[in-house]
């Protein structure tokens, strides 16, 4: 290898070392752990209890998961929750992004800062803040009861709505950033051009703004789905035991049930689900690129 061909690798070496050492190696380790036989007693577990039987190779963990209604239910719930959160996020984020996109430059910068600001706070602080807001004696219920909209305080958490609210709240900033960026990329002359041709505001939106922001919508949907598939804090802190996601299941199998192969196999299947989503995303993304919107 000549020096000039070697140089790019040299420049990238810190990143390569980091990726190999702290990403690829743990991933391989995760895969290996999922192939151990579970329930061993001679491992290095605390108090003599084993996490797995060393020096074993078996698909036992995967076979168990595949044959189990329980796991299928957790998987299905996670995917449905992900899709639901992605839909709700988009429904809220798109009008908000449209609003921010149309603001004058200074107000736009302020609005985007306000959207991203919650991301600077610790996620636990955010969740507990939400709990305070949505609790039986909190301001939201206070308002609802005060207005006479409901007679009893609404239970906003330790149930499915709680999980949806929490996850949407956590994901919204990413979706808004992706959508505002794609709206800002649209040539600002196109909307007046369409109106000059006789199209009213509604037709301009359906025929110009919406199709041209479609790549942004796809990206925002993808980000939301990926994020929601890994939902952990929301279900744990705002859900009930019914709202069990794959991420929570991994944690429970690994640290509560002490069945490392099963936890690892669950994690691997979660990654496979995410990868499948990424592949499926390529289909609409390619279609949209062909339709001529900004990539």
């Amino acid at each position: 290898m000549t020096p000039s061909r070697f140089r790019p690798y040299l420049l990238a070496s810190p990143a390569i070392v980091l990726l190999l050492g702290f990403f690829l190696a743990p991933m391989l380790q995760l895969g290996r752990v999922s192939l151990y036989d579970g329930g061993g007693r001679s491992g290095f577990g605390i108090g003599g209890g084993g996490f797995y039987k060393p020096n074993t190779w078996t698909f036992q963990a995967y076979r168990t998961l595949a044959g189990e209604t329980y796991f299928r239910e957790v998987w299905t719930f996670t995917v449905l929750l992900g899709l639901g959160v992605a839909c709700i996020t988009l429904l809220i984020a798109y009008p908000l992004s449209l609003f921010i996109h149309r603001l004058p430059p200074r107000a736009k910068a302020l609005a985007l800062t306000a959207v991203v600001l919650p991301k600077l706070a610790n996620v636990l602080v955010l969740i507990y803040g939400l709990e305070l807001l949505l609790s039986n004696s909190g301001p939201v219920n206070g308002l609802l009861v005060g207005l006479g909209a409901v007679s009893e305080p609404v239970a906003f958490f330790h149930n499915l709505p709680g999980v949806l609210i929490g996850e949407t709240y956590l994901i919204l900033p990413y979706a808004v950033l992706a959508l505002v960026a794609s709206l800002d990329r649209i040539d600002p002359a196109l909307v007046p051009a369409a109106r000059g041709l006789g199209a009213g505001p509604l037709r301009v939106f359906w025929r110009v703004t919406l199709p041209l922001s479609a790549p942004g919508i796809a990206l925002a949907a993808m980000l939301s789905l990926i994020w929601a598939l890994g939902a952990f804090t929301g279900p744990v802190l705002l859900g009930s035991p019914q709202e069990l996601t794959l991420a929570v299941e991994v944690q429970r199998q690994t640290f509560e049930n002490l069945n490392w192969p099963r936890g690892a196999a669950t994690a691997v299947l979660m990654l496979v689900t995410l990868a499948a989503c990424l592949v499926l995303y390529q289909v609409p993304a390619r279609f949209l690129r062909r339709r001529g919107g900004a990539p």
Partner: peptide, 21 residues
């Protein structure tokens, strides 16, 4: 009168063609 009702044709300097159509 809003511009969509004026029935004036306009050729923009950068053409402002719809890229997706």
């Amino acid at each position: 009168m809003p511009l969509e009702r004026r029935n004036i044709g306009m050729v923009f300097q950068n053409y402002a063609l719809f890229p997706h159509l």
